[in-house]
Design a binder for these strands. Structure first.
Length: 513
RNA sequence: GGUCCCUUCGUCUAGUGGUUAGGACACCAGGUUUUCAUCCUGGCAACACGGGUUCGACUCCCGUAGGGAUCACCA
C-alpha cells in the first residue's frame, strides 16, 4: 500500500564520488547505505562521477570505482557506464546545465562575478585569521558587480540567516547566520564547485535522499541558502500530510505549496570510520586499504558488506552478521550511530571465517578457484574438493588455502626438528620412533583407507603399541604432513590415500638416520 | 580559535528513569582420543568527570574534560 506522498516522490539515492583514487571502507560504506535506502523502498540507486577538479583526477580511477562497487555487490540502476533517464552521469559532461542554473541565479541578483584574484582573497583570509575571526568572503563583497564573463569565479550572493533542518542520522540541527557565506558557484576554469554542482544534479536527477559523509555538515547552511535562493520550499517537512489535507481545505494550503516550489531532499550525514588508533578519520594517507585489496586478499563480498554495514549500525537485536537481503530489509538511517567507529581488522577476520563456513562446498569451490597453491592445479578435481572440505573450517581468508593445504598436493620434506616443538615427542628415542613408524606402516597396509576404517585401525594401533594418542597420532601426523597443524588424522590419511600415506611413512623412516 | 557532532567493557555495540548494565570480536581457562581450526562451557572487562532535576539516574538538564569534523577557485 503506497501513501500518497510516495507515489509522487519515489526514493532515489546516489553515490557521487570524484574519480581521484580508489574506494576504501569509508567510501564504500557511504555507497552501501545509500544503496540500502533505495533498495529497501524499491527505489533507484544512481552512480554519478563528480569530476569537476581536473587537477586531482586520477587515470583509471573511474573504472576502479565501478569495479569496487561490483566486487562488493552494490549494483546501481543508473550510472556513467550504463546510462539512465537522467544522464549524463558525469559532471564534466553537464557543464551547460550548471551554466543555465547559474544564469538564473545571476538574473535573480543572487550571483555575481568575483573581482578579486585568488591571492587577494587569500590575504583577506589570513587577515581574518590574524584577528581571530572566522573568514567570511561576504565582508569583502564588492559594491557593484561587473558582468560575469566566465573568466572570474562566480559567487553566490548570500542572505545570511539561521537554518534548521532534520538530519536522518544526526537529528535536528540548528545553524547560525555567521556560517553562511558567498561561496564559489563556478570556478574561473568554467567548472562548477561541488557546492553548486551537486545541488543542480541532485535536483535534476530527482534525488530524494542526500546521503554523504559528515564532512559536509558544516556546509549545510550554505547549501540550504542556495536551495532557498533556487526557490525550494524550505518549510515542507510534512508535505505528504499537507497534500493529503490540501484538497478539502480552503485552498490556501494548495496555493501555498504551489508557490513554495520543490521540497528539499532528505539529508543524512554519516559519521566517519576511524583508523585503528581511533584518533583520525580513516583515510588513504593512513593506509586505508582499497576494498579491492580485501577481495584480492580472500575476503568475501558478503563479509565486506555485513562488516561495513555493522560498523556504526545495528538493528537493535543481538544479530551480529547480516546477509544482503537482511540488510535491505532491516537497515534504517535512524539507527546509524552518530559517533565514528573504529575499523577492527580482527573482527573482520572472524566474520570472514564465519561466512566461509556458511558457504556450501560447491559455492566455496567456485570462490576459491584463484587461490589454490600451484601444485594443486595439476591435481584431480575430486581430490581438491576433498581437501577443500577439510580446510573449510580452518580458512579465515581464501588466501589461507595454500599454507593450509600444500602438503596434500606436493611431497613435504621431512624435518625432524619439528618433533622438538612437541612436548611428548621430543622425549622419544630414535629407536622407539623407528619402531612406532614401522608398526604403523604394517597396520595401515591392511586398512582399506576409508575414514571410518582408519579410525578403527588407529585405535587398534594404540593398543598394540601401548602408546598414548598424543605420541602415536602426533608422530604419524607429522610423518605424513610435516606441517605444524593439519585436520584430524583419519580424514587426513583418507584424503591423502593409501599409496601416498605409505610412501610418506617410508620416506620418513628412510630419513631417520 | 569559530561553528557543528560525539563520549557504555581494549574494539563494535544493546540500552530511551527502577536491569545482577545484555551480546559479539579479542583475550584467558577447560572440554571434544595428537596439532590447528570449528564447536561447547566458563572467566576477565564498561556507563569520561562534576553539578543539578527526581523517591530513584547509564538514561533528562547544565558545565568540565577528551575525541572528531569543518572553516579552499577539493570534494
Amino acid at each position: 500500500m503506497l501513501y500518497y506522498g510516495e507515489m509522487t516522490h519515489s526514493v532515489r539515492t546516489r553515490f557521487a564520488p570524484s574519480p581521484t583514487g580508489y574506494l576504501h571502507v569509508g567510501g564504500i560504506r557511504t555507497a552501501l547505505f545509500a544503496y540500502l535506502v533505495a533498495k529497501q523502498a524499491g527505489g533507484a540507486f544512481v552512480l554519478r562521477f563528480e569530476d569537476t577538479d581536473k587537477k586531482r583526477e586520477v587515470e583509471g580511477s573511474a573504472k576502479h570505482l565501478i569495479e569496487s562497487l561490483h566486487a562488493i555487490g552494490i549494483e546501481y540502476d543508473e550510472g556513467p557506464d550504463i546510462g539512465g533517464a537522467y544522464g549524463p552521469y558525469i559532471q564534466s559532461e553537464r557543464l551547460d546545465r550548471y551554466k543555465a542554473w547559474a544564469q538564473k541565479l545571476i538574473d535573480a541578483g543572487r550571483a555575481y562575478a568575483d573581482p578579486y584574484s585568488a591571492e587577494e582573497v587569500q590575504q583577506f583570509r589570513e587577515q581574518a585569521q590574524k584577528e581571530k575571526r572566522a573568514f567570511l568572503y561576504r565582508n569583502h563583497r564588492p559594491e557593484s558587480a561587473g558582468v560575469w564573463d566566465g573568466s572570474q569565479p562566480l559567487r553566490f550572493k548570500s542572505e545570511p540567516k539561521s537554518y534548521s533542518y532534520h538530519d536522518e542520522v544526526m537529528g535536528d540541527i540548528a545553524t547560525s547566520p555567521e556560517v553562511v557565506d558567498d561561496f564559489i558557484l563556478i570556478k574561473s576554469d568554467g567548472y562548477p564547485t561541488y557546492n553548486f554542482a551537486h545541488i543542480v544534479d541532485d535536483t535534476e536527477m530527482e534525488i530524494s535522499h542526500v546521503i554523504r559523509g559528515q564532512e559536509f555538515i558544516s556546509s549545510m547552511p550554505n547549501f540550504l541558502a542556495l536551495y532557498e535562493a533556487l526557490g525550494f520550499d524550505m518549510t515542507a517537512k510534512h508535505e505528504a500530510q499537507a497534500e493529503l489535507q490540501g484538497e478539502g481545505q480552503d485552498g490556501e494550503s494548495i496555493s501555498t505549496s504551489q508557490r513554495r516550489g520543490k521540497p528539499l531532499p532528505k539529508f543524512a550525514h554519516l559519521p566517519h570510520i576511524m583508523n585503528e588508533q581511533g584518533n583520525k578519520k580513516l583515510g588513504k594517507r593512513d593506509g586505508a586499504k582499497d576494498v579491492l585489496d580485501y577481495i584480492r586478499g580472500g575476503y568475501l563480498p558478503e563479509t565486506m558488506m555485513s562488516f561495513i554495514a555493522t560498523l556504526g549500525w545495528n538493528d537493535g537485536t543481538e544479530q551480529e552478521v547480516f546477509t544482503k537481503d537482511e540488510l535491505v530489509e532491516k537497515f534504517s538511517l535512524s539507527r546509524v550511530q552518530r559517533g565514528g567507529a573504529r575499523f577492527d581488522e580482527k573482527r573482520l577476520l572472524w566474520m570472514n571465517g564465519h561466512f566461509i563456513r556458511e558457504l556450501s562446498l560447491d559455492e566455496l569451490e567456485k570462490r576459491v578457484e584463484d587461490f589454490w597453491p600451484e601444485a594443486a592445479l595439476q591435481a584431480d578435481s575430486g581430490h581438491r574438493r576433498n581437501v577443500l572440505a577439510l580446510a573449510q573450517d580452518r580458512l579465515k581468508t581464501l588466501a589461507d588455502l595454500p599454507t593450509l593445504t600444500s602438503y596434500f598436493f606436493e611431497e613435504p620434506s621431512p624435518d625432524w626438528t619439528m618433533l622438538e616443538g612437541n612436548k611428548q615427542l621430543k622425549k622419544l628415542e630414535k629407536d622407539d620412533t623407528r619402531h612406532l613408524l614401522e608398526q604403523s606402516v604394517s597396520a595401515l597396509k591392511e586398512s582399506d583407507f576409508t575414514a571410518a576404517a582408519l579410525q578403527e585401525t588407529l585405535n587398534q594401533l594404540l593398543e598394540t603399541t601401548g602408546q598414548k594418542p598424543g605420541i602415536l597420532f602426533s608422530l604419524i601426523r607429522l610423518a605424513v604432513s610435516w606441517a605444524p597443524f593439519s585436520p584430524a588424522l583419519p580424514e587426513t590419511l583418507a584424503t591423502l590415500g593409501k599409496e601416498t600415506t605409505l610412501k610418506r611413512l617410508e620416506t620418513a623412516l628412510a630419513s631417520l638416520s
